[in-house]
Design a protein around this nucleic acid. Structure first.
Length: 463
RNA sequence: GCCUCAGUAGCUCAGCUGGUUAGAGCACUUGACUGUUAAUCAAGGGGUCCUAGGUUCGAAUCCUAGCUGGGGCGCCA
């Protein structure tokens, strides 16, 4: 009985299987045929590497047919594991039989050569078979695991916050409407759509954040996190925006802004450490072909403390810097992308910008004693912009109510949220991590559409 | 939403100051080759030059509009 093995199994244990007969299945990455023998590189997605299969006239069945095998075909190989330490790969499979499971005709779009990212995006259903996307999506999966592991090791409760929400008061951008009404069934009152006739009896949207629900759970379970998809209907056309993306949103009771900054820093470092330890080959590939010095950059992050500046200090640094901006930095005003880039450059790594002017931040952020700023911070990183937005939440009922009024937030809709401040309200804080942006930072890939399996952006919902 | 660049073979791109039959490398097909590593060598097939108008004797090339994609800005994670 021969053993059916994955590429990963074979790479990890080929020594133990020397001279044994094995069976493996996978897709042809490259094929080099010669007169009396040929070489096929096979990958099955279980790890980054390919395995070289050798076939020979007289040794392998159907030799003449095998020469026609093309890139992309799915094959099953049965043969002997041969150790080849003197060659550029430690072992190969000397094939006894090769069976074509699924042929790949000559118009297979992927070739054994470099393709542009734009081209591969149009072939998202096939791009997982390329080196780059094998690396990126293996790491994406590892990173997901690393996040769950980090929070579970700290006894956080994982909460599945709702995807459909009736709240649209968070001001976090345009929302996608969820409705079962059709032009035929829609009822109208005075020319307007009658939302009472809709599925939920009211206007509903896809969530832009699970934060508010996480706050409720934090005041029952102390430390919680959500990790799931969020949706923004904003017509943003940039390398760091997608219409559907994932966020990690922890929320901790009895924690202030410093506590939550420490938590986010610990988490960022822990998940980077996890990926460095578990995706050595993938990271080496990315370091070589995608971003030179990537591994060193990440190792530095893990080994150093993140910088912290207040928004006020940041503006002063920018104003004093010998740097011309399209929009001059201004006290009390928001930081433009060019300012963020300059700050990150100034500190040479991730930096927390804290204590933002209250008028440019959300209503739920806790008002500082100066009555001018809020206890909020953004974590800026080179290449992926803002990856974490954190704040201490306003736990004082009267202050929150006042802030909601000032910022025009509907009190009825968020009555439950306000009510949390009446029953055992405690100081609490949380942050949101843009998962896909974090993945960009870790892989060095500069476009969010290339770290999401099937990305959705304005005017693009293919696959 | 605004600004900007691009769209020519399956892919990457050249041709673009208008002028015979639109080119190259890779891929593909056929053949050569006794250990290849994006193998190499030879021959061959392959094009609505993004779409629609316009200018012109003549448009891949110039003009206008649109579509698609990249980059920048705004918004944000």
């Amino acid at each position: 009985m021969t053993m059916d093995m994955t590429v990963r199994d074979l790479i990890e244990t080929h020594d133990e299987h020397a001279r044994e007969e094995v069976v493996m299945k996978g897709w042809v990455r490259n094929h080099r045929a010669q007169k009396a023998f040929g070489f096929i590189n096979v990958n099955d997605g279980t790890c980054f590497d390919t395995i070289q299969v050798v076939y020979e006239e007289g040794l392998t069945e159907n030799f003449a047919l095998l020469r026609k095998i093309r890139t992309g075909a799915a094959i099953e190989v049965a043969g002997e594991v041969v150790l080849t330490p003197e060659r550029s790969q430690p072992f190969e499979i000397k094939a006894r039989t090769i069976r074509i499971i699924g042929d790949s005709p000559e118009d297979y779009p992927l070739q054994p050569k470099r393709h542009s990212r734009e081209f591969l995006r149009k072939h998202a259903h096939l791009r997982g078979r390329t080196n780059l996307f094998t690396a990126v999506f293996r790491i994406r999966s590892l990173l997901t695991h690393a996040i769950h592991e980090f929070f579970h090791s700290r006894d956080f409760l994982h909460l599945a916050s709702p995807i459909i929400t009736a709240s649209d008061a968070e001001g976090a951008g345009e929302m996608f409407r969820v409705t079962t009404l059709t032009p035929e069934t829609v009822g109208k009152k005075g020319g307007n759509i009658d939302h009472e006739e809709d599925f939920f009896g009211k206007k509903t949207n896809l969530t832009v954040s699970g934060q508010l629900q996480a706050e409720a759970f934090a005041q029952a379970f102390r430390a919680v996190y959500t990790f799931g998809p969020t949706f923004r209907a904003e017509k943003s056309h940039t390398p760091t925006h997608a219409s559907e993306f994932w966020m990690v949103e922890p929320e901790v009771a009895f924690a202030d802004l410093d506590d939550i900054m420490d938590l986010s820093e610990d988490m960022v470092k822990a998940i980077i450490r996890y990926v460095l330890a578990h995706a050595e080959k993938e990271m080496a590939f990315l370091d070589r072909f995608v971003e030179k010095g990537l591994i060193k950059k990440l190792e530095n992050i893990v080994g150093s403390e993140f910088h912290k500046v207040t928004h006020k200090e940041a503006v002063t640094i920018l104003t004093d810097a010998d740097h011309s901006f399209d929009t001059p930095p201004e006290q009390g005003a928001d930081l433009a992308t060019e300012h963020e880039k300059a700050l990150v450059e100034h500190f040479g790594g991730p930096v927390f910008v804290t204590d933002w002017p209250k008028d440019i931040k959300a209503f739920y952020m806790r008002l500082n004693d100066d009555e001018e700023t809020v206890a909020a911070c953004d974590l800026l990183v080179p290449g992926a912009g803002e990856i974490v937005g954190a704040s201490q939440r306003e736990e004082r009922h009267d202050v929150l109510k006042r802030r909601m009024r000032e910022m025009g937030v509907d009190e009825d809709e968020l009555g439950w949220y306000l009510e949390l401040r009446r029953y055992g309200s405690v100081p609490h804080s949380g942050f949101g991590l843009g998962f896909d942006r974090m993945l960009m930072y870790i892989t060095g890939v500069k476009n969010i559409r290339d770290v999401i399996p099937f990305p959705r952006t304005p005017k693009n919902c293919e696959f």
